[in-house]
Write a protein that binds this DNA or RNA. Sequence first.
DNA 1: AAAAAAATACCCCCGAGGGAGTATTTTACT
DNA 2: AGTAAAATACTCCCTCGGGGGTATTTTTTT
Lengths: 225, 225
Amino acid sequence: MSILLAIVDDKKINRQTVKEKLYGFAEISLLLEAESGDNFLEQLNKTKQVPDVVLMDLEMPGCNGIETIRLATANYPSIKFIVLTVFEDSDKIFEAIKAGAHGYLLKEDKAVEIVDAIVNVHEHNGIPMSPLIARKAMNMLMAVPMHAYANEEEDLPIKEDNAGISTREMDVLKELASGKNYKFIGEKLFISPKTVRKHVANIYEKLHVNSRTQVVNIAHKKRWI
Amino acid sequence: MSILLAIVDDKKINRQTVKEKLYGFAEISLLLEAESGDNFLEQLNKTKQVPDVVLMDLEMPGCNGIETIRLATANYPSIKFIVLTVFEDSDKIFEAIKAGAHGYLLKEDKAVEIVDAIVNVHEHNGIPMSPLIARKAMNMLMAVPMHAYANEEEDLPIKEDNAGISTREMDVLKELASGKNYKFIGEKLFISPKTVRKHVANIYEKLHVNSRTQVVNIAHKKRWI
DNA sequence: AAAAAAATACCCCCGAGGGAGTATTTTACT
DNA sequence: AGTAAAATACTCCCTCGGGGGTATTTTTTT
């Protein structure tokens, strides 16, 4: 039995485009179309058959997509909503998911990706997401302080993020990274330049690099300097 | 020209499985395999050709996948890492992304999905993500207060505080800062290593420094890299 | 007290990096 | 068309950095 689909988009041409993309995939059959959130909800209340999956645009006059999802999922929890919109709406993703969306795709995505997503939400419990959307979501996430979503075992002694670099090696590394030569570093740390050499060799080994430049890059990335 | 791929997984059987999945896709050619993070980093430092995309397992003895990604992206920013692992590792997703991963797939994903992801990270700037992973990520996200991730980023029009560095010199500088030697830079930019030398000398003069390391620090400070 | 890890120090060898030039061709801007 | 600036290329010389070691002392952990 095929998956019953609904398409909600205010512009007829958009619905048409989607229909064409889905044309030929036997596992999907179009149950209904709506030109607005309100219209979709009305149709829902009148029909016997409810769709399995709904492709939902966000930018629509009247009741917007997210609100529609929120309302519909309250009464029809079996329906899986996939947001299908343009990239400009992408900051709505968290709102949409929170409202009950089960996927977030871009209109520019390929047909096979959309079909995959429809099948996936229907049969599994994933959240199909366009790569560009995921990128956006992750960017937004990275702005959030890490501790906010820190979970379990984070109470461990500040996880060896330093790749096994010892304290003395770190002393050397800092000087190294600021461009000092062995002689200078040795004088500053009151040790022989030969010893500095040895520390540096060990650092290189631990970081899997072979030049000062690479150490500096890693040091910046890890915010050691 | 096809996409150069690397596979990092401690178990030979897993690498074999992946290879079989990718077999027959002409747009992807396998450049190298590694059985551990350490091994991968070593190979990177020795090979002339750098992979475009790396499929990285997370659970490995020795240097783990995330640490490997962190180290590698610091010095090879052009490489796109896609985590390819089992669902049990899925709570590592934020760590992985933060470390520099560009995708997060499951080993059980279909071949075509993996290929799509590889092509996507190589040609676009998305983060391909398995639906189940996205679900997990969203679940973790929903625990975060909404206001936290309101608005952020947007391409800051940061332009030109460069100290009279010309465009060509900037080309050289970027390679220089990532630890390449003169010969390599020359090949990459289609000029003689002697010319590179000259550019570097000019850069040093303009920035008032006398070593690569110092250039890297300035480049980071000025956010050139 | 014994074992492990870190810190100290040294060796040889060679190539890459850098100082200080000179010089020609291309591109950019009047 | 004429000039300035940038990009290209090369030379000599010498230091410093990095690969690959070995070895002793101190500190930490068990």
